[in-house]
Computed example of a mutant assay.
Amino acid sequence: MIELRDLRAFVTLGETLHFRRAAERLHLTQSALSKQIQRLEEDFGGPLFERSPSATRLTRLGRALLPEATTLVEGANRLSRRAKAAAQGLVGSLRIGFGVTTKTIAPLAISRFRQLRPDVQISLHEMSTRHQYQAMIDGTLDVGFCRLPAPAGWPTLTAQQDSLLALIPESYPADITPEALVQYPLVTIDRTRAPAFYDHLINFFAQRGLDIASLQTVNAFTSAQALAAAGVGWAIVPGSFGPGGEGVRAIDFADERARWQVGLVRPPGEADALVSLFWEMVADVVAEKP
């Protein structure tokens, strides 16, 4: 079996055509270099060099094989350099998950990471918290912005607090209470799009003993906001979604049961260099928040 070190010796000697200089470049003795060349000649079935007191020349076989051997050695060298760079977090890929309720802190951290590691390929995957955890278990996601708490043993970094926020059409009474709101049609995101958010909403009203008279679901929080602005019904969105824009006014429920934590999560075990660097980036962004 041909060894890479022997091919490297062949290429170096083929470039220098001088045993002493080639040996010095390879940090070998001339005797060790000769043995490597001899092993290759046995594998290839013929001499690669003609050696005389005055010169060293490639044989016909040596000239025929040198270009491809050079390509193989250069490819191995590139692979080695890339492996070292990947181990240092300079290149590679990072697969990041996020949910429909976690779009505030993630973009800033990702933008900074891209500036620091422009050669790293980042792929973003929008999915629910439950699907993010499964993807990390399956090895198709490296890190995710998920609703907390995480499963036991999973490293977490709390990134932000979020809450249920009501967007009320301007046509509704100014002093309307949650008890009165449930009599109007409610619009929110479909459970298939954000199961944890949807379940939290339903449980919250159940805990307060309030029955929602009419519930319409949509595929995006922007759609819920638009329907609220049009007066079709009132909407519930994450507080991180924002105040809602024209045509609505936002009401915070001022109830701890309406709040939850969002954090960066990764699978148990030692994190690789890219995940560790991104983790530090998110921690810096969180620390800067007022």
Rank of each mutant, 00 (worst) to 15 (best):
A180C: 00
A180R: 09
A180T: 05
L181Y: 05
L181P: 06
V182D: 05
Q183G: 11
Y184E: 12
L186K: 01
L186S: 04
L186I: 03
L186A: 07
V187L: 02
T188V: 04
I189C: 03
I189G: 02
I189Y: 08
D190V: 05
R191S: 12
R191Y: 00
R191H: 09
T192L: 10
A194K: 02
A194S: 13
P195M: 03
P195G: 06
P195A: 05
A196C: 02
A196M: 08
D199W: 04
H200F: 00
N203R: 15
F205D: 05
A206E: 06
A206F: 05
A206P: 00
Q207G: 06
Q207L: 15
Q207P: 00
R208H: 08
L210R: 06
L210E: 06
I212F: 01
I212N: 02
I212D: 01
A213M: 11
S214R: 15
S214D: 15
L215Y: 01
L215N: 02
Q216N: 09
Q216S: 12
Q216A: 10
T217D: 01
T217N: 05
V218Y: 05
V218M: 06
V218C: 06
N219W: 06
A220S: 14
A220H: 13
A220V: 00
F221C: 05
F221I: 03
S223E: 15
A224R: 01
A224E: 01
L227F: 14
L227M: 15
A228W: 02
A228M: 08
A228L: 08
A229F: 03
A229W: 03
V232K: 04
V232E: 08
W234L: 09
A235I: 02
V237R: 09
V237W: 09
P238G: 13
G239E: 10
G239N: 11
G239H: 14
G239Q: 14
S240L: 15
S240K: 13
G242E: 12
G242V: 08
G242P: 09
P243S: 10
G244K: 03
G245K: 05
G245T: 09
E246G: 10
V248P: 10
V248L: 07
V248R: 02
V248K: 01
R249A: 11
R249Y: 12
A250S: 15
A250G: 09
I251W: 12
D252C: 12
F253W: 09
A254G: 00
E256M: 13
R257L: 14
A258H: 04
A258E: 02
A258K: 06
